[in-house]
């Protein structure tokens, strides 16, 4: 009963929030940008006439086909999504500090762990809706471009991969939530997310990709390391540990640390 009440208020807090639309606008630019690139590759002459960078697009080695489009889309959702998801979580947790409402929230007759759980659920729903909406948009844009090489099996596989990457990215967000509550605002978690993405790229190139949490999504989508068919079990243990440890740290932070604003 208490959890559902907290969850309902967390969704209520998003009413008329411009940030939800900004995140959708941000991620939805991805397929559109990708579609533009595909069109430039397919029509370099017309693109050059319009002043677009046809030569550079060709040099990138990209092909204007469904497999290339979906593969790049997975990269986009995997890497861009990790950053955007960190932003969502930083907002959901950090707004209580920037809007100075944490002091109101923490002296309510509600166990503080319910706030953490409810906010994580809100972030999960937000992220899921965003991912599904952008994947749907990407399919529509792909068909509108009339790209060659479409097959239902390949599309389902690519969409499945993107959803798994989105799910794995989510397992890392409690750590971002903890940094947000400890840092009491948006900047520490965003700085942390950018730093971890950079480190993830570095670790990915050292052969430790499967063990470093922020290298696992890049590894899975083929951005770093040798291509893998499926992630090793150890990676899931690392991700599971990060999820549990991050959630516990956030609860403990709200429960025991001084919450002066």
């Amino acid at each position: 009963m208490m959890f559902t009440s907290v969850l309902a208020t967390e969704f209520l807090k998003l009413r008329r929030c411009k940030v939800t639309w900004f995140t959708f606008a941000g991620l939805s630019m991805g397929p559109l940008g990708l579609a533009l690139f595909m069109w430039i590759v397919r029509e370099p002459g017309r693109a050059a006439q319009l002043g677009l960078l046809g030569t550079k697009a060709n040099l990138s080695g990209l092909e204007a086909t469904w497999p290339a489009y979906l593969s790049t889309l997975t990269l986009l959702v995997g890497i861009g999504g990790m950053l955007l998801l960190s932003f969502i979580v930083a907002y959901v947790f950090g707004r209580e500090y920037t809007e100075v409402t944490a002091k109101n929230m923490l002296a309510l007759p509600v166990a503080r762990h319910w706030f953490v759980m409810a906010k994580l659920v809100v972030a999960a729903v937000w992220w899921l809706v965003l991912t599904v909406a952008v994947l749907a948009e990407a399919m529509v844009v792909g068909f509108a471009l009339s790209l060659p090489g479409f097959s239902a099996t390949m599309a389902i596989g690519a969409v499945g991969n993107a959803l798994v990457a989105a799910g794995i990215s989510y397992l890392l967000v409690p750590v971002v939530a903890w940094i947000t509550t400890a840092g009491r605002g948006y900047m520490p978690p965003l700085g942390f997310a950018i730093a971890m993405m950079a480190l993830g790229n570095i670790f990915g190139k050292t052969g430790w990709a499967e063990w470093f949490p922020w290298s696992i999504v890049p590894l899975m989508i083929g951005m770093v390391g040798n291509p893998v068919e499926s992630l090793p079990a150890g990676s899931f243990v690392v991700l599971g540990f990060m999820f549990v440890a991050g959630t516990a740290a956030t609860i403990l932070q709200l429960r025991y640390a001084d919450n002066a604003q």
Binding site: K13, N104, P109, A111
Partner: peptide, 27 residues
């Protein structure tokens, strides 16, 4: 800190007045 059940019997206002700016007074 962290034991919150008593706060159902306490009303409070801490220093600056704050609220969720995107919500109405009623919300």
């Amino acid at each position: 800190p962290g034991e919150t059940s008593i706060f159902g019997r306490i009303g409070y206002l801490v220093e600056t007045a704050t609220a969720y700016p995107n919500l109405t007074v009623r919300e």
